[in-house]
Design a protein around this nucleic acid. Structure first.
Lengths: 262, 262
DNA sequence: CAGTGGTCTAGACCACTGG
DNA sequence: CAGTGGTCTAGACCACTGC
């Protein structure tokens, strides 16, 4: 941007005196982080891809390897990148075996997730709807906007455990159908990456204990008077953009919601 | 100390060839981290204290500042240390205002935690008991060992919200009484630090939805048929030693359990 | 073997705190 | 102002991967 003597490649640095109102000081590595983030968001580098090596990025951004390193450190801590020694640094994806179901915190009382086999998914419904006020507020859209609503049932070991309603912005997920969902094996978020270019980065959950409603207990094949765990999730993509609202009802008689506090 | 010319302080480094069986390679900074951890565990540096400066530790351990820095980075990420630019690095404590109730994930539907005022605590019971099989298994003690059991009620804005049963190893918490607990203002874990030298470092929670039992709904002043959030926590001190089992029943009609997934 | 990320060092300088 | 943590650099070497 400026006209200095050396900078053939535009330089990311911008830490000189601004004259007024200290701009809160953003260190170089954070600016580099921002540049990498922009590449991720623009799908320049896609989930599963290797990004350029630290040395290459250092040359490109005209900073030292250590500075690039610190930027990547933070992105790896945020689960946006994955480092593999000797191989390179890769864009994180929900498709990897190890971190599959990163956002599903329900685990069986006995054994672990592998012992109960893969989840069976049954799509109950998938329809176009208009956003109600609560959905609109959660996803920062206008009420009345076109949405996709999915209802599905997750079973483990042949037993229905989770009943979920999912709301997605119609624009971003145009073309998503019940058939497409039913055909899918593997995590829904992995499919979102490959089919719609939407990568879920983080999520927030509000958890409550509620009494099952008749329809819910029927679908989960439970007695009328049952306590269920209500899990309301908002999932975000890059730049904290909310892209999914999900309301799950969890049976917790043979599973529990596991949380680690630190 | 010793009489040699240079190595007055023993050197932590141990990365030369061991001859056989590669010892999994632990980098220098991780060994430094272990040494610092040992000082924390031995209460050499106590919660709230400043630890020696990075330069001082680098001299003491005979490594570069950068290596100490990386060790401290990890300890800060683990919430064991807190860095304050210009002031120093401090041993983390549950007494600090900002991170008080780090482990309490229940927040009000409207407003935030400050808006409902401080929690009122009422100790219902505090007695010496013997560990049952489940408590013993959770805390890695022998069943029959001496334990302290505390039952208390937490209220927000005058309304009872949480009923908790707490089990503590009798040995470590000798001298803890209902009077001591009732007198206390502020987080229980802060008192554990100052009075018993026990610092809770991390915790695991198992969360379920259950129907309230008559005794529980009575204490919480709720109708008989109510769903409650059951939160079973095991809290750990240094070296992953379990030091507390806690079973909480949470009302979730005006509050929710908030969790962030990333 | 070359290429990747990972560690360690030494030194310079910056931002922040408190006396 | 001195002392703290925070940033940035440059260079050396190590551990790991895959050809």
């Amino acid at each position: 941007m400026s006209s200095s003597t050396t900078a053939a490649v535009p330089n990311a640095i911008d830490n000189v005196d601004h004259g007024v109102a200290a701009p809160a000081f953003s260190p170089l590595y954070r600016q580099i982080k921002g540049l990498i983030l922009k590449n991720l968001q623009a799908a320049e580098w896609r989930p599963g891809d290797a990004i350029p090596s630290e040395m290459e990025l250092a040359r490109r951004f005209r900073v030292s390897q250590g500075t690039v390193r610190k930027a990547i450190d933070e992105l790896a801590a945020d689960n946006l990148l994955v480092r593999r020694q000797g191989k390179g640094t890769f864009v994180a994806t929900h498709a990897e075996q190890q971190v599959q179901y990163r956002f599903l915190k329900l685990v069986p009382d006995q054994g672990d997730r592998t012992s109960q086999g893969p989840a069976e998914r049954r799509i109950i419904d998938c329809k176009r709807v208009r956003a109600g006020v609560d959905v609109a507020r959660a996803l920062l859209v206008r009420s009345g906007d076109a949405m996709l609503q999915v209802r599905r049932l997750l079973s483990f070991g042949g037993e229905a455990v989770i009943l979920e309603d999912i709301w997605l912005p119609g624009v971003a997920f145009k073309g998503l159908t019940a058939e497409r969902l039913s055909a899918d094996r593997g995590p829904m978020y992995a499919m979102f990456e490959t089919e719609f270019g939407v990568r879920m980065v983080r999520a927030e959950e509000k958890i409550r204990a509620v009494l099952a409603e008749p329809e819910q207990s029927a679908l989960l094949k439970l007695p009328a008077l049952t306590a269920l765990l209500s899990v309301e999730r908002i999932a975000y993509t890059y730049h904290d953009k909310p892209m999914e609202l999900r309301r799950g009802m969890y049976r917790t008689d043979k599973h529990y919601y596991r949380n680690e506090l630190q």
